[in-house]
């Protein structure tokens, strides 16, 4: 299977600060991909470069064979690469209904709006109960559901989740993990950034340890790892 996304030698950063140093990785060849590693080492920056929020300084980002490096976020959303950013800040004063309508904003997603809305409601029945409520009045877990639901409304061909369980209670984490698993089984490949390694091991088949703005270690399927080994990667040998 060809990778749906391949990042080839991308360098990116903010102003004069370079965060990503010639980073390369692939997603979609072996199923879902997990990214982990210490904070402040470029995971979020990588996602921002992939989704067009940040223009990479050099390198190629191939999505389904097309180089999307430097394209606008709108064009990338239009191609079906959907990024759920960290921290579920979203649109605090819009209702859930509004967020779902916005998710279906791109011309590619518009014809699938009704069908995707049903999928979201099936996946997160709680949202239907609060359909007209403002996002700011929801709990952290519900806001994360809205974030992911909005992304599903965009009819993703590849879904990128940045720390979806950040700040959530363990029980809600488990529920969310099950929902994300459902999305994956529905045929949408995932890239997930997560600090919770258990969550990643359950959800993904291929792992990258991102350290100092580059891939430090790649873990392919079959090369299973135990928790202790990952911890030692995190904290050095």
């Amino acid at each position: 299977m060809n990778p749906i996304l391949s990042v080839e030698g991308v360098t990116a950063g903010y102003g004069r600060v370079t965060v990503l140093h010639d980073i390369s990785l692939e997603a979609g060849r072996f199923g879902n991909v997990g990214l982990f590693g210490p904070n402040g080492h470029g995971k979020t920056t990588l996602l921002r470069a992939i989704s067009g929020l940040l223009q990479p300084k050099s390198g190629r980002i191939l999505f389904d064979g097309q180089d999307i490096a430097g394209h606008s976020a709108r064009a990338i959303v239009g191609a079906g690469l959907i990024h759920v950013p960290q921290g579920n800040r979203l649109f605090p004063d819009l209702s859930i209904a509004d967020c779902m309508a916005l998710g279906a904003y791109s011309p590619r997603a518009r014809p699938h709006e009704a069908e995707n809305r049903e999928k979201v409601i099936k996946l997160f029945p709680k949202l239907a109960e609060r359909w007209r409520q403002r996002v700011r009045t929801l709990s952290g877990g519900e806001r994360q559901m809205v974030s992911i639901g909005t992304a599903l409304m965009s009819h993703p061909r590849l879904l990128i989740l940045d720390e979806p369980t950040l700040g959530l209670a363990p029980k809600i984490k488990d529920e969310l993990c099950a929902s994300v698993m459902d999305i994956s089984r529905g045929g949408v490949p995932l890239i997930v950034v997560e600090q919770d390694i258990e969550f990643l091991l359950e959800l993904t088949q291929q792992l990258y340890l991102v350290n100092h703005g580059a891939v430090a270690t790649e873990i392919k399927p079959g090369e299973s790892l135990d928790h202790g080994e990952i911890m030692s990667m995190y904290f050095g040998h």
Binding site: G52, L53, A73, V77, V84, P92, L94, L102, G103
Partner: peptide
């Protein structure tokens, strides 16, 4: 209207606006 919704959305969170494909 959907366009009005887009205007309200971009007022609240520009990055999230980009990520749902708003111009």
């Amino acid at each position: 209207t959907r366009l009005g919704l887009a205007l309200r959305a971009v007022a609240q969170n520009e990055d999230a606006g980009h990520l749902v494909g708003l111009n």
